[in-house]
Every structure is written in C-alpha cells, then in structure tokens.
Nucleic acid binder design. Structure first.
Lengths: 340, 340
DNA sequence: GTGAAAGCGCTAACAT
DNA sequence: ATGTTAGCGCTTTCAC
C-alpha cells in the first residue's frame, strides 16, 4: 500500500505539516521530533509523491527536450550531454522526437507545457509562424541548440557554421586542392545547409576556384552521400577533394568511391562535418570539423537550470546574454592528402 | 496568467464538474452546454494541467525508461523504437542513463517511482540483491530489454544470444575457417558476454577447433576491439577469422588489422554482433548478427501500454506470457570470405 | 516548535 | 444533465 505523508504523521505522532517540514529540511523543527519522524520514514521506506509536491509547488522538476531524431548520433550525443549534467541534480528529463515534423513539434511543445515542465530545450532548425507563436506563449525558459533564435528572442547555443566551413575549405586549398566539390545539405536548412554552403562558395570564390557543377545536395545521410558521389563521379569532372556538410554524407561518398575503384585520399580527399564517433573509426578515418555535441547539451542544461532557479525571465533584448557560440575544431585524419 | 478549469467554468457559466466532463468527453452533458464550454476553451486556449489530473487520477501517463548510455547506438536505437511507438499515444517518456552504475540505477528507479510513472522499461544486464528488491517493491508494470528476468519474474524481451552466436560461428566454419578467434565481452555480463562466448566455445568444440589462446576480452567498444586485436596479432597465432561480441569490437579489430597491413577479409575474416548502422557503412562492410533494436523498443512499449491499460498484474508464474524471444538474423557483407 | 486549515487543479461520487 | 463536495498528497500561511 502506498504511504502518504499522513501515514507518517500518524505513525510518528505529529502533524502532516511537521513531517513536511522534516522532509524539506526546514529548521523550524526540534531535533527531537525531527529524529522521531526521520526514524519512521526510514522504517517505512516512505518516499513523498513528486506529483503532489509539484502541484503544490507549481514546479515539476521536469525539463523537456524535443529533438528531431533519437537514433541519429548527432542528436543522441546532445541528449547524452544534457542528461549527464542533470542526472545528479534534482530534475528529470522528458524526451520527445519529432521526425522533422513541424506539427509534431508544436503538438509536443504543448504537451510539455501541459505536463508542467519547468523549462524546454529545443534541438531543431526550422520554424514556422505557428511554431514561433507556440514558443512565445510558453511562459517558461526555453533554450535552443543549433538554431538561430534572433528572431525569436530565445537564447541559443550553436557554432559558427559559416566560419567553420570556410576553415574546412581553406584547409583543402592549403593542401593544394583547386577542384573542390561539395555535398551540401538542403539550403532551406539555415545553419547546416545554407551557411556551410556559403562558407564553401565564398572561400573558393575568393581563389577563383568555385565551380557550381561540382556541388550536390543531400539530407546529411550515408545514402544521400553515396548517391551524390555517384553523380559526381559519373560527370567525370576533374575533382580532387570534396567537402561534405556532414560526416555521414562524407562516409557515404567515400564508400561510393571505394566501390568504384577511386582511392581515398589518393585520388580524392574528403572532409566531413560533425565528428561523430564513426569518423575516427572509419577506414580511412575522416578529416572533419568537430562540433562539441555533448558540451552543447551540457551547457544548454546548465543554463536551463540557472534560468529556472533564478526565475530568470528573458527580455526581448538580452537573449544574447545567454546565447553562446561554441568553439569548433578541425580534426585532421586520413581522408585528406596534400597534392602537388 | 495560467488558466484553470475554474476560470473556464465561470466564463461559460457552468460548474467545474461540467467543464471536466466536457474535457473528458463524458456523454452526460447536453450538446448545448458542451458547445458553450468548448467555445470558451477554444477562445482562451485553455489546456488542463496534466499534473493536477495525474494527482487526481493517480495515473501520470508517464513511462520511465532507464538505460546504461544514451550515446551508444545500440541503446539509442532501442529508445528510438520505444519513443516512436508512444509518440502519438497519450504518454510521455522519462529517460535516464546510468553509465552502468548499479547504484545510479537503483536511485533512478526510485526517482521514477516518486515521479509516479505508470510503468518502467529497463534496458540493462546486471543486477544485485538490492536492485532486485527495489524492483520487487515497484508496484507498477516493469519490462526488461535484453535481460534475463527468470529470477525476477519480470517480463523481458531479448534474443537467444547463445544460439545466435552458434550460428555466427557455424557460418565461419562453413566458409572453411578452422582457426577462429573471439573477442568476447565480460563473462559477468550474462547475455552479451557469457552466452555469446559459450555459443562460440561449444560450436568450435564440437568440431575440435576450439583454442583458448585465441580468445580475448573487451567492453564492446572500438578501442577495446582495437587493443584486443593488437594482442592477437602480436601473438602470431595462425588465425583466419575472428568472431566479435559486438560490431564496435569488430570494427576496432578491423581497423587494427588494416593499420598493421593485415587484409580484411583476405587475411582474416570478421563477424560482429548487433548490426549497428555503422556496420553496413564500414569499409569493408561488416558481416554481423542483426538484432532488431528498434523493434525491441517498440514491442516493449506496446506491451507496457497493454499492461498499464489492462491493469495487468504480473503473477510470479506467468511472466512468460509477456516475455518474448525475438528473431535475429545473420547479415553477410564484405568482412567475411571463404577460404580453401 | 507545532498544528489546523486552505489551496495547488483536477476528477468522481453523490445529490438534485 | 448539472452542481456540490470531497479528495488526490503535498506545502504553506496563520495561529497558538
């Protein structure tokens, strides 16, 4: 039978209020009664109901996190970071995936609200008018990871994709490459799609190397990388290096090369983006831009707790105070090679 | 300002009870009042508090899931399956990782209980006396994935690791291999460690091929696979194939071979276990035993909902009714080769 | 220092 | 068909 605070009160001969005080370490209770109550609690193995406490306190100690896909290593790393930070704090994680469905996202933001989460972390990239409105009505702290929030006045955590992409391309140029292709993400995807592409285009443009024919597009997956590369190979352009908007695209492309007798990096160099675990394990291991996913999750959660505990309300003009641009890093591995 | 059922009642000129009836589609309410109330709800954008409802109903519509590690593809696939099934149902997921820490696990089982979850899914392999006791006291449905529950009388979902391992080894034997090594998991890990090893040992023993010297051990990771293989290569035994207790072990081992000039599969064939995404992408792609992770998560959640909705209490002797042994499958890829 | 009582937002008898 | 009331398990004034 489920015990309640009332049972404990009766068993220890005090009132519910006193038991509650003991439970919450209120100092307004004598050592004697405290001990008495504590004994009964220990004996009976009593644990107070979070549900009741949440209702009374109007604070659920729940934090919601909504992301596109749980099985994608990129996202699961982010959650792992967030979860790991929160694990020993007094909060729990409510997780939902949306499968990149914007309506699903809106629906679950509302569900999270119903559940009374104290804050919401959004891992996402696209919005819509209705989406924005839903967020504006949320009335609890929100943090976005990997998304531009300037329109929304919501603090966000991200990296500078444009600059990272420039660095990647510059690196290839420095290795002597001139005929450089790209497998980009969808341009509708502002950060990982558009920005990474612009960094590529502008950098190559600067050297006069940019060639639109060498650009393909895919949805960050292995299979899309594979077929984009097939198309690139069929076209028989002179091409010595390819920059890919994600590691999976790069690995798909590499696999395609190998199956077609094209050597990596001897014939073509590849550089990816993300540095998922897979990349260091691959054969050849993949040169890539490392994004600190776990750290992003960790930081997001850190800020979230801070905002919750300090009851910080974000005002329209200071989301920057909480927004962070994190450091990325180019990791050199076996998939890139200097050419003469 | 947060609206409550009381506000809606006043605004529509009825009582809280009636609003509640409308909210819950009770038919004992006239079309007229229903419409009136519904209008107010729509207008005000009112959404009832799950927290209050949970407390009143003694049902949280929360399902807890505890697993070792969120960033491991094996586990994240399982969650993805579970989450995906529940997404459009009226339940939410509370997730915690334990980092293989048994005390952490116990602690969070209790937290889940405090939070009032309606059921608990455990993805895990090891237990302890205290762990078992905690589970026995849980008083809500529990389902385990990948773990033997016969001792605990808890329904579980798993595959027959012993038999799968036999199949893998038999496959290598059929390809003509005699000198077969294994990189196993820790034997303390009953299913993935011990059972897979026993299947290997017994099958090779049957043919008189078993050689203890060719066995190494690791913790299912790339790095452990790499170093186990280093040790195997250094020993310079005659060896033409290696069975690994996980794909990551296999891939680590393959990477080690390649870096040491040993050709895969020409010199040594490899077979893994799990079929994580990585395996089909790898170069060479990995022959392996496919475990249906997403399906396991999906099924677990399906059973969980069923148990919850039917208020099914598992009796000591019929956990079998809910326990399932799922099908695995050997997937042939590039890492294995017939020898003469 | 401790208890009585009201309240968190909802549901469910029980009346009417 | 609808309203009144008690209750879910806890916290928190307000008295004493």
């Amino acid at each position: 039978m489920k015990l309640t605070i009332k049972d404990i009160a009766e068993a220890s001969g005090v009132s519910k209020a006193t038991v509650s005080r003991v439970l919450n370490n209120s100092n307004a209770v004598s050592e004697e009664t405290r001990k008495k109550v504590l004994d009964v609690i220990k004996e009976t193995n009593f644990r107070p109901s979070s549900l009741a406490r949440s209702l009374s306190l109007q604070k659920s100690h729940l934090i919601g996190i909504i992301l596109p896909d749980l099985s994608n290593p990129v996202f699961s790393k982010i959650i792992a970071g967030a979860e790991s930070y929160i694990r020993n704090k007094d909060y729990s994680l409510l997780i939902t995936a949306t499968d990149f469905d914007i309506d699903m996202k809106i629906k679950h933001i509302n569900i999270m609200k119903d559940k009374g989460v104290d804050g919401l972390i959004l891992v996402t990239d696209h919005g819509s008018k209705e989406f924005h409105n839903t967020l504006m009505d949320f009335e609890k702290p929100i943090i976005m990871i990997g998304s531009d929030s300037s329109v929304l006045h919501i603090p966000s955590i991200k990296i500078d994709n444009y600059k990272a992409s420039q660095d990647a391309v510059q690196y290839l140029v420095n290795l002597g490459h001139k005929h450089i292709g790209m497998i980009r993400g969808p341009l509708s995807d502002y950060h990982s799609g558009l920005q990474r592409y612009l960094g590529f285009r502008d950098t190559l443009g600067y050297y006069g190397y940019y060639d639109e024919n060498l650009v393909r597009e895919g949805w960050y997956t292995f299979d899309d990388g594979y077929s984009a590369m097939e198309s690139l190979l069929e076209a028989k352009y002179e091409i010595t290096a390819v920059f890919c908007a994600s590691d999976l695209l790069a690995i798909g492309a590499i696999k395609c090369c190998i199956e077609n007798g094209v050597k990596v990096p001897d014939d073509i160099s590849f550089i990816g983006f993300d540095d998922v675990d897979l990349s260091r394990m691959y054969n050849p291991s993949l040169t890539t831009i490392r994004q600190p996913f776990e750290e992003q999750g960790d930081l997001a959660m850190r800020l979230m707790i801070e905002m919750i505990e300090n009851k910080y309300i974000i005002k329209k003009d200071d989301e920057d105070k909480f927004s962070t641009s994190m450091k990325y890093q180019l990791i050199e591995r076996e998939s890139t090679k200097r050419i003469k």
